[in-house]
Amino acid sequence: MSADTSKPLAPGVRPAVGWSLLGSELSVLFRRLRTWAMLLALAAVPILIAVAVKLSSRPVAPGRGPLFLDRITQNGLFVAVTALVVCVPLFLPLTIGVVAGDTIAGEANMGTLRYLLLAPAGRVRLLLVKYAGAVAFCFAATVTVAASGALVGVVLFPVGPVTLLSGDTIGVGESMLRSLVIAGYITVSLLGLSAIGLLISTFTDVPVGAMAATIVLSVVSQVLDNLPQLDWLHPWLFSHHWLGFADLLRQPIDWTSFGANALLQAGYIAVCGTLAYAKFSNKDILS
């Protein structure tokens, strides 16, 4: 054999945890053109909102349109919050659905799944790494919207102290901090959907199917959440607390919905995660 620079570890020697697979997953995810296209599309949402408000000759009437739309002209920092409100119901779930639905099914479709397993990545480890990648994307997507909103707001509109829902006013620094907490809240909100996408992804070799199913579920969940006849079901829907980040804009911050949301998402992660584990570890990789 040609110059071999490594020897296999002696049997019995515990191998490294192998963070490099996670690193590789992240680099593959964020080097993909598709990922960048989605992030750019998300970044465009606040820009569109801000430009539309800037160009519109008519001032926005208070209480019309999404949260804080009327206040953007007075304070650019509101662009980020308004954009997040706009993105949470559809655009963010759409992109998360693509990434989470692609996790396993995408690898199976490209034929790389069998080679990852032969490496051997280990099925549980691969599942965890793929989920971690989806979670990283959730955070990146949310932060992209918030950061793009903050930037375009600063460029197009005056910046000053921010009015909370309670009518109190906080400084620019604290408003940045709260934006970050909101980004965290939305990331947590999307964890359940990511776990659902991962689960669906283990059932198919057709990534588009898994993506579509995940996105459809996110819409269905939101529709059910709006049917008053099903109010017994509402607290169990993964989208139930999606817009609850408004509680972070009150004075003082109300952490109740943050906690309830985190608990709910953790439940979805536990259930979908174990189902995905059971399905994936028993799956015959025939792709």
Binding site: G63, D70, L165, G167, L243, A246, D254
Partner: peptide, 29 residues
């Protein structure tokens, strides 16, 4: 008193001789 509506809030603040009612939905005080 803070009435917590979805994405909005109505506040009644009483402080001595002053009282304020604030409605975030239309940003009126």
């Amino acid at each position: 008193l803070q009435i917590m509506d979805a994405m909005a809030e109505r506040d009644l603040i009483v402080n001595g001789k002053d009282a304020w009612f604030y409605n975030s939905a239309d940003n009126s005080a």
